[in-house]
């Protein structure tokens, strides 16, 4: 319990820092914030529009008051309204967030499904054919940005072979099968970059744990090889893997931004890219904040899983 409480406290502090930084960023950029937001391509905005924006965003008030009302607002879940259509940003995010989460979950699951067995096999046959093959594929996968993978998948499977649609989205409840087909390529695109990470970590940590003394003890007890590998090697080797996935989450979330764009997946990231293109700052701020919260919460989740995997962490 102590461990969890401390992790939660750290997460809360991180969240506050992130929220503060997002707030401050607008004021840290040299120049008047309203002017910065409105200027584009060296064109100075008109005085009236700058004044109007100042009023709209409350930029005329003192910084402290702005910060207080900003924090109050986000605590109530109100992320403001979009520059574009004055729609509620929170509502839009609430609608899109689950789709992004689904994509992240699907690609992580896929990566574990492929990366863990491949890493185990490579470790057991180190220096052998499979080890060499997987290692080469892993270096290649690490060199493939998700948007390149996605684009090439579309070129191959949609344009040339015409097997799957090039992108789009159908709600799960409307048509589960079609939904999963749409999910497949985006999830694979992200997984291509994540599988090597999982694979390498599993391989390294299995190799390391194979020579641990408790594995020797387990063998000396007369346990079967399968039991030794799964219960005494793999089980322990998974803790570092969980940590690594947590660390790579940042990259993973970056990957989803590009992949959602490539496949027209109507998640948070598509909204984000659009908002950035249109320089809809309140929307960008809101989405980045939500994704950062997600980032911190998933990392907290990773810590919890870590605690479940390793009893030493729990009681420390």
């Amino acid at each position: 319990m102590h461990y969890l409480a401390r992790r939660t406290a750290v997460a809360a502090v991180t969240l506050l820092t992130v929220a503060t930084l997002i707030f401050l960023l607008l004021h840290l950029v040299p120049g008047d914030p309203a002017e910065v937001l409105l200027s584009s391509g060296g064109m100075a905005p008109s005085h009236e529009s700058v004044q109007a924006l100042r009023l709209e965003l409350g930029l005329d008030r003192p910084l402290g008051a702005q910060y207080a009302s900003y924090l109050g607002r986000i605590l109530q879940g109100n992320l403001g309204t979009s520059f574009q259509d004055h729609a509620s940003i929170s509502a839009e995010i609430a609608q899109r967030l689950p789709r992004t989460l689904e994509l992240i979950l699907a690609s992580t699951a896929l990566s574990l499904l492929v990366g863990v067995p491949a890493g185990l096999l490579a470790a057991l046959r180190r220096g052998g054919f499979w080890d060499g093959l997987f290692a080469s594929l892993a270096s290649l996968g690490l060199s493939m940005p998700a948007f390149v993978t996605g684009t090439l998948l579309i070129l191959l499977f949609s344009q040339t072979l015409k097997l799957v649609p090039a992108g789009g989205y159908v709600g799960f409840w409307e048509s589960p099968g079609q939904h999963l087909i749409y999910l497949l390529m985006p999830a694979v695109s992200i997984a291509v970059g994540l599988i090597p990470v999982v694979f390498r970590m599993v391989r390294t940590s299995v190799l390391e744990f194979l020579e641990r003394e408790w594995v020797r003890t387990a063998r000396a007890k007369g346990l079967g090889e399968r039991r030794v590998l799964t219960l005494h090697v793999l089980r322990n080797a998974l803790s570092p893997v969980v940590t690594v996935i947590g660390l790579h989450l940042g990259t993973l979330l970056g990957g989803t931004v590009l992949v959602e764009y490539v496949f027209n997946w109507p998640g948070l990231s598509g909204m984000l890219v659009q908002a950035v293109e249109q320089r809809d700052y309140p929307a960008v701020q809101g989405i980045v904040l939500v994704i950062c919260i997600l980032f911190v919460l998933i990392n907290l989740g990773v810590d919890v899983i870590y605690g479940l995997l390793d009893p030493r962490v729990r009681t420390r």
Binding site: V18, S40, V276
Partner: peptide
Amino acid sequence: DVILSFPPMLLALLTVALIG
């Protein structure tokens, strides 16, 4: 640590949204 608490791509997008 503050920089690390942002996914890099997002910090990049946030900045681009601000200053183009």
